[in-house]
């Protein structure tokens, strides 16, 4: 009872602080936004968020992908101890469900990837959608995943980061790390985003798949 009282008091205090901070917030001044808009023509894409993520602050994105990959390694090191018997019987409902849903998911992921260069979207969102699709496939058709080689999957999940670093090393020849030449910028960004989408989708789906190993 005391524990809940303390919790309520902390919540009320936190809420009060939140209201205070919102009330005393300085007015919004889009200083960074004008800087981004000024250099947008040099980035190779026409959407500001994608320009920041994959050109102006590409190093941050590279390190972020590295962190996600490290998290996957951590999960793979800890061997899963939760084993269950996969559901393998034919089921009309789930069969029709994934037959309708999976093409839509793949199509929307590809659309989001391509749309990233001129409006909201991009590799991360597309990979999150694809990962969801893979998890649905894993839960409804576990037999498909039996023949997959662990080594191939590891290589695929690292491929996006490898390509990203490779491009970075190549850009060192002419300028700074990950400073794309202007004429190649949009092609390079699209290639990096495509590979990142596949790698990140496999990594995010592996978060789930590695945690729930099938009973042999």
């Amino acid at each position: 009872m005391l524990y809940k009282g303390v919790l309520w008091c902390m919540a009320a205090l936190f809420l009060g602080m939140l209201f205070f901070m919102v009330a005393t917030m300085p007015p919004f001044s889009p200083k960074l936004d004008t800087l981004v808009q000024a250099d947008l023509a040099m980035s190779g894409v026409s959407h500001d968020v994608t320009a920041v993520l994959l050109n102006f602050r590409a190093l941050d994105t590279l390190l972020e992908v590295g962190v996600v990959l490290l998290a996957l390694m951590g999960i793979q090191v800890v061997s899963p101890h939760f084993r269950y018997k996969p559901y393998t019987e034919a089921n009309t409902i789930t069969d029709i469900y994934i037959a309708i849903l999976l093409p839509v998911i793949i199509l929307s992921a590809l659309y989001l990837l391509l749309a990233g260069s001129y409006k909201s979207g991009g590799a991360f969102v597309a990979s999150a959608l694809l990962a969801g699709g893979i998890i649905i496939l894993k839960l409804t058709k576990p037999k498909l995943f039996v023949s997959l080689e662990k080594l191939h999957l590891r290589f695929l999940s690292a491929l996006g980061l490898l390509f990203f670093v490779g491009i970075g090393v190549l850009t060192l020849i002419e300028g700074l790390f990950l400073q794309y030449p202007l004429s190649y910028a949009s092609t390079l960004i699209l290639m990096i985003e495509t590979l990142l989408m596949f790698s990140l989708a496999i990594i995010l789906a592996s978060f789930f798949i590695n945690a729930v190993q099938d009973l042999e």
């Binding site: 979207g121 999150a128 995010l204 945690a211």
Partner: peptide, 30 residues
């Protein structure tokens, strides 16, 4: 007006994290 964040929130925050948490509950029950 942050549509990309909204999609990422649904897919990652609700979808994958939710699936993992439901799985954890099944593990605890077992």
């Amino acid at each position: 007006f942050a549509f990309d964040l909204a999609l990422a929130e649904v897919a990652l925050g609700s979808g994958i994290t939710g699936a993992l948490l439901l799985d954890t509950i099944a593990f605890i029950k077992m």
